[in-house]
Simulated scan of single mutants.
Amino acid sequence: MIRLTSTLLCTFAMVSAAHAAPGDKAVAEMKGLEGQILGAVTLIETAQGVLVTGELTQLSPGPHGFHLHAVGQCKPPFATAGGHFNPDGRKHGFHDGAGSHAGDLPNLHAASDGKAVVDALAPGLTLSGGAKSLLDQDGTAIVVHAKADDYKTDPAGASGDRIACGVVTKAR
């Protein structure tokens, strides 16, 4: 397994408008195009943003674009998840001088056995109310793409097809 640790934003989709406080959690069950369960992601609100952790399996080895999308829906081929979560109206990519989408995350790297571990921070995002909440009325989705994000090409880093998706929901 390869562990991805960096400052980033990440999550699945379709979250309720319920309020969260630091320490509150949300979850996203990741599914592939055929409906197979590929793993789960846990989101925890912190004072610095949303901590995103989890493990995925059955991915092709190598890097994959990994993003928070603006709509909490995951109907294959996952176009229903909309574009990247972008409440500030910025361009895509960490290499953009004006800043990136709030939903831009570092690439997810799958090992030769198809497993990938996520351990990242989505700075400035919340699970509570407001424009930067991942649990807004239309929810949020986490999407895995077929290819690596180049961190510069707008709107999605030339990361290819959407191959996995999960809707973010408030944990009980």
Rank of each mutant, 00 (worst) to 15 (best):
E55Y: 02
H101A: 12
L8T: 15
M1G: 12
K152W: 02
K25H: 09
D150R: 12
V168R: 02
T140M: 04
G139Q: 10
C10E: 08
L125S: 13
H67V: 15
T126S: 15
A110T: 01
D104I: 01
A120P: 00
T57K: 11
T169Y: 06
E45H: 04
A21F: 11
H67F: 15
V41T: 06
S100P: 01
D96Y: 08
F66E: 01
A158C: 00
A116P: 04
P61W: 06
V168D: 07
T80I: 04
L43M: 12
T11M: 02
K25C: 08
T11I: 05
L8M: 12
T169I: 08
S60Y: 00
A164P: 01
T169A: 15
I2E: 04
G89K: 04
E29I: 13
H95A: 15
N86H: 12
A148Q: 09
Y151T: 11
K75H: 10
A102M: 14
H92G: 06
K147T: 08
R172F: 03
S112Y: 01
M30R: 01
S16Y: 03
L59F: 03
A164K: 01
P22N: 11
T42G: 03
A17P: 04
R162W: 05
D161L: 13
K132V: 00
P123W: 07
A110I: 00
D138T: 12
S100C: 06
P22A: 13
L59W: 02
A110G: 05
G99L: 08
A79E: 13
A21P: 00
A70F: 01
L8H: 10
D104E: 12
K91S: 10
G157S: 09
A98V: 00
P22M: 12
T80M: 05
A131E: 10
M30T: 03
L125C: 08
D88Y: 06
N86D: 15
A26T: 05
A18W: 03
A148Y: 02
H64E: 08
S128A: 15
I142H: 02
H19A: 15
L121F: 02
G23S: 07
G130M: 05
A171H: 07
H84Q: 12
T5Y: 04
G83L: 12
Q58N: 13
G65I: 03
T42N: 08
A122V: 01
S133D: 09
L121I: 11
S100R: 09
F12H: 06
K31G: 10
A146V: 06
C10F: 14
V50Q: 00
D150K: 12
M1K: 11
A13M: 10
V144A: 05
G49Y: 04
K25T: 09
L135A: 14
A21L: 14
K147S: 15
G129D: 13
I37M: 10
C165W: 04
I37S: 15
H101D: 14
G160A: 11
D104M: 02
G82C: 05
G124P: 07
F94A: 13
G23A: 07
H145I: 10
A13E: 14
A164Y: 00
F94Y: 10
G82S: 06
D88N: 07
K152V: 01
L9M: 08
H67S: 15
G97C: 00
G82T: 06
I2G: 01
D138Q: 11
G93Q: 05
A120Y: 03
K91E: 08
S128C: 09
S112H: 04
D96F: 09
G89D: 05
G114K: 05
H19P: 00
